[in-house]
Design a protein around this nucleic acid. Structure first.
Lengths: 257, 257
DNA sequence: TCGTGTGAACACGTTCACAGCC
DNA sequence: GGCTGTGAACGTGTTCACACGA
């Protein structure tokens, strides 16, 4: 990997001092992850150079935002040309911590947990699940993807030993806080929480929450909004020959542009 | 601009045609869903009245934000007292579209899909999964939770017939766009997408994306940042040591936030 | 010429602090 | 006194538009 390919960095190389933390906005970080995936796809297709317009389009953002996002990492593009796919990919990987070894510990191998444990996208993207935990006697001891499920009480020890950097909590709500405490005890400072509860953690621990029923409710809100706003105002475009709908259901089918 | 949210009539405020401005900010909507869950828990505990301070604390936000959020719905609190749990719950349910019948169609009953299909939280929160789809011959025809898995090609017909309001896509990436088109054809205007691809949809269709590897990468970013900031703080002193009774709040690493 | 990089304008979201009502 | 509801201040994030370099 090539870090700091050249020059003394125009706007602030961090030597090693009291240089304040990098000013990468939180909102930008999430998008960098998206760009990184798209870059991977582009490279597989053999694309060597990409413009901000193209990369932005493929990532679902506008090009100004993309350029601004990348500008926080320094100048890695070439004016009049675009970005070199490979080197930009490397730069993003570095920024997103992919040059460290990441290792995921997953707690709760029930319904959702087993799906997460088997999700190929994690290992494929550099986040191998390396430890599994549960309390259920039927589950403790079994192997999933070659990894043995251990008892929750072993979390601190195993996480420390395996160097787990990220904990994922996929337990029922009531168990989540206890599990969280054990992860923190094991030195885990980043947690992805699927349980529908608010976790209490020390200040130096980062928690992100994925709340599926919140997502659904936001969508339901928009459903309701449309019913009020749209009502009779069904979009103009020809309904076209959609499958026979039941009468009442307003099949406001709109043909894609 | 103008257009006051206006504390108009509780039901059916303005019903006139064009409504260019969104009265309730997007960021607020997500939080309303959280408040709603917490209110449900409070009611189960027999709590009848709650202050903004308490409700905010239980929801993980500060009280000013909560009051501002609720103010978009009108005045439902009592000064000097707080909010009536039951009536606020009812108000939020209405605002979030829970007085309409919601019905979820889930496409892709593989690893993740089966977990989602079996997730009790959905039905329990008013989002029953009422249709399942896949292409895999081994899966089409089986029953999950009493619902038969149908072939993807039946999506338009079945969604229209069942009045599916929300589609969930849990297929592999390459299949997602096609599935999405079928959902739209069936009249579905709200989609929750778990596939790591950018969906192309008409303007009147709302898509929310849950991207687990993005979540992990954001966490990884913070891991890396801590390593830079905290420097020597992470490396566990000889793991050899006893299962150290770590204080819960180890104040060792201080991130300069 | 073309596309990046970036200050400046703008829009959105959060926090403050206090008026108003119980 | 206590707590809600809300304008105004503030901060964060997004978009614009153009100078600059290949």
């Amino acid at each position: 990997m090539s870090l700091r390919p050249d020059t003394g960095a125009p706007s602030g190389a961090e030597a090693d001092g009291e240089r304040p933390v990098r000013p990468v906005p939180e909102a930008t970080v999430s998008r960098l992850a998206v760009y990184l995936r798209v870059l991977g796809e582009l490279r597989e297709q053999g694309v060597e150079t990409v413009s901000s317009e193209e990369l932005a389009g493929a990532s679902g953002v506008n090009s100004a935002k993309l350029r601004k996002d990348l500008s926080y990492l320094g100048s890695y593009g070439v004016r009049g040309v675009g970005y070199d796919v490979t080197s930009l990919q490397g730069r993003l990987q570095g920024e997103l911590g992919m040059d460290h070894r990441q290792s995921v510990g997953l707690v709760g191998v029930g319904n959702l947990g087993q799906a997460l444990a088997g999700y190929a996208g994690f290992a494929g993207r550099g986040f191998p699940v390396s430890a599994l935990f549960d309390v259920e006697p039927d589950l403790v001891g079994i192997e999933i993807n070659g990894i043995r499920v251990r008892h929750v009480r072993e979390i601190p020890e195993v996480c420390a030993a395996h160097g787990v950097t990220i904990g994922m909590i996929a337990t029922p709500g009531p168990a989540a806080q206890n599990v969280c405490d054990l992860l923190v005890e094991g030195g885990v400072q980043s947690i992805l929480n699927f349980a529908p509860v608010l976790l209490q953690v020390p200040d130096d621990v980062e928690v992100r929450k994925v709340d599926l029923s919140v997502e659904l409710q936001v969508l339901a809100f928009h459903v309701a909004r449309r019913h009020i706003a749209g009502d009779v105002a069904i979009p103009a475009d020809t309904p076209d020959g959609a499958a026979g709908a039941t009468g009442e259901t307003n099949g406001s089918v709109v043909s894609p542009r």
